[in-house]
Structure formats: C-alpha cells, structure tokens
Amino acid sequence: MSVDATTVRRIAHLARIAVTDAEVPHLQGELNAMLAFVEQLSEVNVDGVEPMTSVTPMEMKKRADVVTDGDIADDILKNAPATEDHFFLVPKVVE
C-alpha cells in the first residue's frame, strides 16, 4: 500500500502536525518508503495467532480507588506556557 498527497495531508491533520505544500512530496516519499519496508509482513501466516497485548505474562495490577496524590496545582501549572490563576489558557474554543 502507498499513500498519495491527499492522504499525507489527512494523516498530518489527524496527527495535529501542520505541513506546508512544499513538505508534502518529501513526506509522501518517506512514508511510502516505510510502508514498502513493512509490506513484507503480509507474507507471514498469522492465521489463528493472537495479537500480543502484553509482553510479560502478568495480570494487570489494580490499586484501591483512593486519592493518593493531589493539591499540587502549582506544580502542574509550573511549566505551562500560559496560565491564569489555576487554569491553562488556550485560544477561544466556543464561539
């Protein structure tokens, strides 16, 4: 399988990465090189094989549903590019 220019733009938008028109042909070439490389997986017989979901055989650990952390709003906001009081600031979302 290979991707065309429209698909490259669509993937970029899904990935939330802006691409310029000039970048599209180059990205298309690179993505198609990767897709050509992984194409060989189609020759493997995977009938009846379970897809791996955990590399080590272990049951998922669960913890008690209790608060173990908190009251660290200042820490959480410390690295934010724009804040006001204890909120992250973003451009207007709702018109």
């Binding site: 698909t7 990205l27 992984v38 493997v44």
Partner: peptide, 29 residues
C-alpha cells in the same frame, strides 16, 4: 514527525487491522 505520522496512519480507521493487528500477531510469533 515522520514516526508520529506513520503511527497515526497505521492506527487510523481502515488500516488498523491490516497493519497494527497484523504486526502484533507477528510479535506473538
């Protein structure tokens, strides 16, 4: 950017089974 985009593609609707699930089956093997 390249890897995030290829990852987005193989997880996207219509390609998930052909790429991602197949790769995880190969991983089992």
């Amino acid at each position: 950017r390249r890897r995030v985009m290829i990852g987005t593609y193989v997880l996207s609707a219509g390609y998930y089974d052909a790429y991602y699930i197949r790769a995880q089956k190969v991983r089992t093997l």
